[in-house]
Amino acid sequence: MRRFLLVATCLAGATLAQAADAPGGEDPSILPAGQGQEEVFYACTACHSTAIIRRSHFPREQWDGLMDWMTEKHGMNPLEGAERTLIVDYLTQHFGPRAAPARGRNPFLN
């Protein structure tokens, strides 16, 4: 029994250590599925959680400009070529501008 408890404690510790590596215990599945999901997750969560991504809805030009801004101001590794295109495409597709509700319509009424 003592051996079982020791093994269980070690396994639990290893699991907690792995979860602590990602911000908030997140993994790529927190983002919408699609080409670029993992690349966005790993490039972005090196510095911040996905919450900032998931609440932002920028046009393509702004997502692309943010890549340069984060490189210049925050020391992010530069994203270039196909990797940058893949990441900006993914962000634009899944976190682009939201459609604005029609003027004068109450969004809470069907």
Rank of each mutant, 00 (worst) to 15 (best):
F58M: 00
I87M: 08
A82D: 11
G96Q: 08
I87Y: 09
E83R: 08
L66H: 01
M76K: 13
R84T: 03
M67Q: 14
E61R: 10
F58D: 01
W63A: 01
M76Q: 11
T85P: 08
G75E: 11
G81V: 05
I87A: 12
D64S: 06
L86W: 07
W69F: 02
G65N: 02
W69T: 00
D64T: 04
A82L: 08
H74Y: 06
D89H: 11
E80H: 11
L86M: 14
P97C: 15
T92P: 08
Q62A: 04
G75Q: 09
G65E: 02
L91P: 07
P78D: 14
D64E: 09
D64K: 05
K73E: 07
M76T: 09
M70F: 04
G65A: 03
T71L: 00
L66R: 00
G96W: 08
G65F: 04
G96M: 07
L66A: 04
T92V: 08
Q93P: 04
Y90S: 08
L79I: 13
R60V: 04
A82R: 11
M67T: 13
R60I: 07
R60W: 07
N77Y: 13
P97Y: 15
M76W: 12
E83K: 14
T92W: 08
M67L: 05
G75C: 08
V88D: 11
L86E: 10
L86Q: 14
L66P: 02
F95I: 11
N77P: 13
G81Q: 06
R84L: 06
E83W: 01
M70T: 03
G81L: 08
D68G: 02
I87V: 13
R60Y: 12
W69N: 00
T92D: 10
L91V: 06
F58L: 01
T92A: 15
Q93G: 13
H94F: 13
F58V: 03
P97S: 11
R84I: 02
D89T: 07
R84G: 01
D64F: 05
W63S: 00
I87T: 07
L86K: 13
H74W: 02
E61L: 07
E80S: 15
G65V: 05
H74G: 03
E61S: 11
F95S: 07
P59R: 04
P78E: 14
T92E: 10
P78S: 08
E83V: 06
K73D: 05
Q62W: 00
I87R: 07
D64L: 06
H74P: 00
G96H: 14
E80M: 09
